[in-house]
Write a protein that binds this DNA or RNA. Structure first.
Lengths: 145, 145
DNA sequence: TCTATAAAAGACAAAAATATCTTTTATTAA
DNA sequence: TTAATAAAAGATATTTTTGTCTTTTATAGA
């Protein structure tokens, strides 16, 4: 088990890739995205459809169409993508899967697990979709395999 | 999606419960464990079977039998349970699910995600199976719902 | 030794996540 | 206004995770 679902991993990789291409002035087709981030094309298509319906990514049909981000979207936190795809369990859930776990009714791992959640929350709120555009263009980061 | 699989959540809850009862001098049957940690009994049975086969938990069949921990096992880190059940992806995996992600070939989240992994690793290595026995006996912690 | 108990083992079932395929709709450009 | 392109939508398939049921094996105690 990884921290994020496959769906979420693909979503994050795709989002970073599309952001980079948007920054360079392009729209990107699903085929190119799937190839570049090494994900199954039809499955990724479904994921981006969902993000599109929620207004988290922009898309246009037809020739020269594809996916892209407008300036406002590039400034959204990655947390918005994760929430849309995996829900908010990762930000608020109990490490032992207990529904009523809380400060008042803690599970044994509560205190330490809070630190994990906070670190994840910080990471995802502090990372905008467009944050790595320059690094990606310079080839500093990998999104493939 | 939660951080750990259901399987792993049940395993951790069960382990803490059995540890507490062991500390009190009892062996525990699968039925009691399942009730007390609110998990599906036959599913939990399979999980404990696996842990038992790996020597992480002790068990005896027959009347007055059940699951328990010997002193050495009580001192094992919770990480051993998680590894047995969920593998080591949570300790070493890439946040974006990339196989070749590393210091030399990092994904965009690599640096921040490392902190998350380190926090999880610390939590699970620093927590022994028997760590919460007294707290559980005193009713300080919850394992149910 | 016989019976009751409780875990181990194996087969099976349901649900959720992951993945694919086909048809429809929107858009562009000739 | 037609043809080509590319996303959206819907139906279907596969795999993995989660959950159940039945039979077998080990142990204790009468």
């Amino acid at each position: 088990m990884a921290i994020f679902s496959k769906t979420c991993e693909y979503a994050m990789r795709a989002v970073f890739y599309v952001a980079q291409r948007s920054h360079e002035g392009y729209k990107v087709g699903i085929k190119e995205i799937a190839e570049q981030i090494n994900s199954p094309e039809p499955f990724l298509a479904k994921i981006l459809q969902r993000l599109s319906k929620e207004g988290l990514i922009q898309s246009v049909k037809g020739p020269n169409g594809g996916f892209y981000f407008d300036a406002a979207s590039l400034n959204r936190p990655l947390a918005d993508i994760v929430t849309a795809v995996d829900g908010n369990a990762i930000f608020t859930g109990c490490g032992l899967g207990l529904t009523y776990c809380s400060e008042a009714n803690p599970c044994p791992l509560h205190e330490e697990f809070k630190k994990v959640r906070n670190q994840i929350t910080y990471m995802l709120n502090n990372t905008t979709i467009g944050k790595f555009n320059l690094g990606l263009i310079k080839g500093k980061f990998s999104l493939n395999k």
